[in-house]
Simulated assay, not measured.
Amino acid sequence: MKRFLPWIIGIGLVIIIGLWYINVKNGAIEVDQAVKKEWGNVETTYQRRNDLIGNLVNTVKGAADFEKSTLTAVIEARAKATSITVDPSNITPEQFEKFSQAQSGVSSALSRLLVSVEKYPELKANQNFIDLQRELTSTENQILTARTRFNESVETYNNYVLKMPRNIILSEYKEKALFKSVAGAEKPVEVKF
C-alpha cells in the first residue's frame, strides 16, 4: 500500500488541478456571456429610443409647421446611429468611440427638436406628444441603467480574466472596454428659448 501512496497522491493532485482548470474556464465563459447579454440590453434600449424617435418626428410633423432642418437632423442622426454596430466579443475603445459619437448625435438632435417644440403651444398640449416625451424620458433612464449594468458586467469579467493565476490560463481572453461618456458630457447642457 505504501508504494502506491505516491501514485494515489499524484493522481489526486492531477484530478484536483484538472477540476480547478475546468472551473476557471467555465467561469470565464460565464462572465463573457454576461458581458454579451448586457451589451444586448444596451443595444435594445438604444433601439427602443430609435423607434420612439420615428413616432416623435411623425407626431411633430403632423402637429406643427415645423423647421425642416431640425427634423432632418434628427432623422439623419438616427440613421447614422442605427448603422453602427459593436461586436460584444471584441469590444474596443475605438468601437465605443464611434458608437458613442453616433448616439451623442441622436441625443443632440433630439434635444434641439424638443427645445424647438417650445415654440408650438398646440403641440405641447397634444396628448400623443406628451406620451412620447414621457416614453423618451423613460427610455433615456433605461439606457443609463443598461450602460451601468454593462459596465458592471465588464468590471466582473475584467477582474476575473486579469487576476493571477487565472490570467495565465485565460490568456486568450482580453480585457474589455468600459462604456464611457462622450467628450464634453461633464458640461451642463445649455437650453435656449
Rank of each mutant, 00 (worst) to 15 (best):
G40T: 10
S116A: 12
Q127M: 06
T72P: 12
L170Q: 01
A73E: 13
R147Q: 04
T148V: 12
V74T: 04
A183S: 13
G105N: 03
S107R: 06
V60W: 02
A177G: 01
E97G: 03
L123V: 05
G10P: 13
L110S: 06
G10N: 06
N158G: 05
L5G: 11
I17R: 09
A77K: 02
N26S: 15
V57Q: 00
A34K: 08
R166I: 03
L110H: 05
R3I: 15
K124L: 06
F66A: 01
G62A: 13
E140P: 12
K187T: 08
N128V: 09
R112P: 02
W39L: 12
L132I: 10
S153E: 08
Q103H: 01
E43Y: 07
S116G: 15
E186M: 09
V115K: 06
S171R: 05
K174W: 07
N126P: 05
R49Y: 11
Y21M: 14
S69G: 07
Q33H: 07
V35P: 04
E190P: 08
F179V: 14
S181F: 06
P188W: 10
V161T: 03
S104P: 09
Q142G: 12
Q127G: 13
D51R: 03
T44H: 09
E152V: 13
V115N: 08
L132E: 03
N23R: 10
